[in-house]
Design a protein around this nucleic acid. Sequence first.
DNA 1: TCTGGTCTGTAACCGACAACACAGAGGAGA
DNA 2: TCTCCTCTGTGTTGTCGGTTACAGACCAGA
Lengths: 261, 261
Amino acid sequence: MIDQCAANVVAAPLSGQRPWAPTQRESNPLVSATDEPFNCLSAVELFADLSPDELAAIDRMAPSRTYRTGELVFSQSQPVHALFVLQSGRVRVFRVTEDGKALTMAILEPGAVFGEMMLVGQRMYDNYAEAIEETLLCELSVTDVEQHLLSDPRIAIRISRHLGEQVARLEERLTDLALRPLLARLASTLVRLGEPQRRSRTGHVTIRLTHEQLAGLLGTTRESTSKAMSDLASRGLIRQSRGRIVLLDVPAMTALSTATA
Amino acid sequence: MIDQCAANVVAAPLSGQRPWAPTQRESNPLVSATDEPFNCLSAVELFADLSPDELAAIDRMAPSRTYRTGELVFSQSQPVHALFVLQSGRVRVFRVTEDGKALTMAILEPGAVFGEMMLVGQRMYDNYAEAIEETLLCELSVTDVEQHLLSDPRIAIRISRHLGEQVARLEERLTDLALRPLLARLASTLVRLGEPQRRSRTGHVTIRLTHEQLAGLLGTTRESTSKAMSDLASRGLIRQSRGRIVLLDVPAMTALSTATA
DNA sequence: TCTGGTCTGTAACCGACAACACAGAGGAGA
DNA sequence: TCTCCTCTGTGTTGTCGGTTACAGACCAGA
């Protein structure tokens, strides 16, 4: 069963060789599955209201599984049947056009919940999700969600709130993309990415992303992103190193992000 | 009380003269308020599961009010305290940047529910909503929603589904904006706008929008929109008249909408 | 019927960003 | 240490769509 899944993962849903991936990654169909109930759901905001007992009950129906770097969690050929909770690692959710260009919707960190689109039933939903590093997920089936989560008002409210926030974020991104030049979008994106993070005592925030990954979020090319990043660096707002970005002056970046030209 | 509201509406939330509005509209602070319970909520999908009695109970706490063309329903200076149900007329929800450029998030038709952002609590939320024709709305307060709606699993599920659909639509729009050229975006937008509509027996769909309003949805200029519209018309896919667009060949438009260059 | 405001069509110019094309730099593994 | 691959920096050229500037068409009200 798990092997079947892995096989589907390897089969590219588009013709050719996973055109959305920055680079080819080796695919090894070996899968490590873990079964450790009782620790999947703690520290997830969605379930903050629940007692340990209730948590354990839900946890019991949520199997875990690890994904290797580059492995797909879901795709068009492998639609979403579950709500996922990210325990460790990072996941990139993205969309792809016919000609292979991609836009990433989000890069998720531990504690995140995703796969909410199963809520919308039959609607065509063509997001992809891939692990961008070694990742551990646990999943709740649709029926579990509808029966145990949405029927509980405490959780229903949190789910709605979560979705509402997602709507707000998306609207924000949409206007940014439509109305702001690249540099402003880059600044605002970096600030947003740094937000959830507890900043070190120096007041600095570190983001682990390559220019390529950033470009995916911005809806632009790697080259343009690099250029804009150099700009920010030369203004002293960020410091860069391979795959790492340090925000030095968040207020200034925030100001920049509302520039309109 | 209502007069106060009207006064706030007239006061421009940005400096100057409502820069987002296509053209100045006269503002008359007279307000007509209606009080007709028992008919606000029928025919709204959200409440489909409720019995007539339950409907009536909720309806009783939902006052109605009319808005004149061009009048603001909410804005930054007048934040959202309620969930709105659109009974008649049309409402445009949009965002504005500092320099007055606007992107419209949605143009709503009767039966639509909006204002879900009150769900997200303190989060800064800077959408505007204006009536683009004579409009009748009724509103449910935040507390009502949390106590009577989210606590009812039947409705909670529908709310989540509704928000989930909104997320999906926004993600779609975001990728379109990022990855597709104007003509394709226009085609897909027109198809989407025509979707909910029951088409006439000829198979044609009519959309009542000006180029300017379309441009607002597309995140582009009126001129570019006109150009693209002419293109579509010359291909025989649509027919135009002042403020009205007739879709002649939906399949072809759909095909066009997935073009990537 | 006239008039002013609102829509729509068109065209020349220009600017931001995509596409393409390399070059160098940092890291990981042999 | 050497090698390979990924990541980053930068230039050149092309193009889509924004900007600016009008003109004609439709419509409502005087």
